[in-house]
Write a protein that binds this DNA or RNA. Structure first.
Lengths: 115, 115
DNA sequence: AAATCATACATAATTAGTTTATGCATATGA
DNA sequence: TCATATGCATAAACTAATTATGTATGATTT
């Protein structure tokens, strides 16, 4: 069982990670992809997702382009030029942080040669 | 650089982990131990720590005993009888969650034989 | 002697982030 | 026709953390 409380503070990094990997994505797609990648463990709610996306745009990290497929609106997000550097730094920071937590909680078997 | 935002939602599990490992600890000691174990990466602020401790007591997870060493007050916390089971479950949940995040962020080299 | 730091507790106001609930709109399948 | 899926969005309520204080003692530094 995934602990949703751990998710706090990770939504923006998750968005950045997915967009970094896929070039550009739209909101609904992000929720589906996260569900897929985590085998249902993580569910991003709209109430958390959309404000986070808007904030990333406001902060200049992401760009938005609105497109219409048939009669349906989609807002594609991608890393802004300036945002790409910030995003990479952020991801590294998050990686380190997760590593620290993993170690603190004894989740890194030393035999495995932790990174 | 550790991202404090990742810390959100992990304070109570961290407390539980340390007390599980050490039997009983007092607040200030927990802050010092966490700093030590994480080589300064994680700093628990009092404003987050004490309310969390009080809540764990209120929830019946922890017991408190007040002691005096010289003229200084210490409140030792330990797992309550009922809390031990809940604590173990919580720690497993957190372990899984960190694992899911690690995988999502690509922090688990498959060569290492993910868990 | 005074100031600063370490130990040790605590709370209150503010800020931030999430959940829950709701809303709009189109398309599809039961 | 009603539920489900797609796709966006926001607002109220809740939870949790930061920041800023506050009390008090002991040790160390200036």
């Amino acid at each position: 069982m995934f602990s949703q409380e751990i998710l706090k503070g990770t939504i923006k990094p998750i968005i950045i990670k997915l967009i970094s990997d896929n070039g550009r994505m739209y909101g609904y797609q992000i929720t589906q992809r996260v569900r897929e990648l985590t085998a249902g463990s993580i569910t991003l709610t709209e109430g958390a997702l959309y404000p986070a996306l808007h904030k990333l745009v406001a902060d200049g990290v992401l760009n938005v382009e609105t497109e219409w497929t048939g009669n349906r609106e989609r807002k594609y997000y991608s890393l802004s030029k300036g945002g790409a550097k910030a995003a990479a730094a952020k991801l590294e920071e998050v990686g380190e942080s997760i590593g620290v937590l993993a170690e603190l909680f004894g989740l890194r078997p030393p035999a495995c040669g932790g990174r």
